[in-house]
């Protein structure tokens, strides 16, 4: 507490009382009103029954684990294979999307940081950022058009003779994966770029001079430097992919439900906010635990991500 007080008074002395009050107040509003309170009310919701409006606050409005029990056991008290299956599938898909993003973004970030110069580098950055001016829904539909039965990819493939019958990319989830991979590409490129940019070019040349192959230069010299960036990008991409709604809604195959769609259904179609909240909390807890576990496996501390 003493340290905090010292920090606060030092900050006030340096920037003046006005700035200190503004920063303090805005951080307070942001953390308390925009993060903590809504989440707490969600948490509160998730432990209550879905009661008719008249009974809310009445004697029947008590805390219960019913919503969580439903996620695990379903209606009949057995194993809720359907919902748990969807959660597992969502997590696996999010992992795949994250891995593909790493594979695509690491080379781009490396080239951006170390090979591209001047105009080429600026064009690359513009080329990466500008497409994101198009909003998410429109972009998702564009992917649908691209991968549809009569879409660009199929017409090129058919006319070039790569395949004879239109491929159903939507059902095969190719459109969904492409859309998700593309949607979060910037969140992966820039953290990696940040990390790799700090690498001294001489180290690469030194390694080359000592006879290291490109593969080894990257494995031993560049990747260790890029690791915090990769982890930081990967956590963001993973969390956002697991929590994505628009892309799965628009690009997902008919047989493939994303866990967020399930939550959405509870909230909107079944008008059961309590159960929806419980499902959302389950998703949050599972995602955070998964990320923490991976960070331990790859020996990255939370501090490194913040850099």
């Amino acid at each position: 507490m003493g340290v905090l007080q010292q920090g606060l008074s030092a900050f006030t002395r340096k920037h003046g009382l006005g700035v200190a009050c503004f920063i303090g107040l805005s951080v307070f509003v942001w953390v308390v009103f925009l993060i903590v309170l809504p989440q707490l009310s969600m948490l509160d919701f998730s432990f209550r029954y879905n009661l008719p409006r008249a009974e809310v606050g009445g004697p029947a409005d008590v805390y219960t684990l019913d919503n969580y029990a439903y996620f695990f056991q379903g209606n009949d008290g057995t194993f809720n294979a359907l919902d748990i299956g969807i959660l597992v599938k969502t997590m696996v898909a999010a992992v795949i999307v994250t891995v593909i993003d790493i594979a695509i973004c690491y080379p781009i970030a490396f080239i951006l940081a170390h090979s591209a110069t001047g105009v080429a580098a600026r064009l690359m950055v513009i080329g990466l950022i500008v497409p994101f001016w198009v909003n998410e829904i429109l972009r998702a539909f564009a992917f649908r058009v691209l991968f549809g039965a009569t879409g660009l990819v199929n017409s090129i493939g058919l006319s070039a003779g790569f395949w004879d019958v239109p491929i159903d990319f939507i059902r095969a989830d190719v459109a969904l994966y492409s859309g998700l991979v593309y949607a979060y590409i910037l969140l992966m490129i820039f953290p990696i770029f940040n990390a790799v940019e700090a690498l001294d070019r001489n180290q690469i040349e030194a390694a080359r001079d000592m006879g290291a192959s490109w593969w080894r230069v990257h494995w031993r010299v560049v990747l260790p430097i890029a690791k915090p960036g990769i982890v930081s990008g990967a956590t963001m991409v993973f969390m956002l992919t697991a929590g994505a709604l628009a892309a799965p809604q628009i690009l997902g195959g008919p047989s493939n439900l994303w866990f967020t769609q399930l939550i959405y259904q509870w909230f909107n179609e079944s008008a059961n906010w309590q159960r929806g909240s419980a499902y959302a909390v389950v998703l949050l807890v599972v995602c955070i635990s998964f990320v923490m576990m991976l960070m331990r496996v790859f020996k990255v501390s939370i501090g490194e991500i913040g850099r």
């Binding site: 180290q203 040349e205 390694a207 080359r208 000592m210 010299v221 430097i225």
Partner: peptide, 28 residues
């Protein structure tokens, strides 16, 4: 450069910061 009987020491040395001293020396 890797095929020549030369070894270059860079102005800023270009030691690998995330490797130990022994790993650095033994990298070649």
């Amino acid at each position: 450069p890797n095929k020549r009987p030369t070894a270059l020491i860079f102005q800023n040395l270009a030691l690998f910061p995330l490797m130990s001293v022994a790993e650095n020396i033994a990298f070649p």
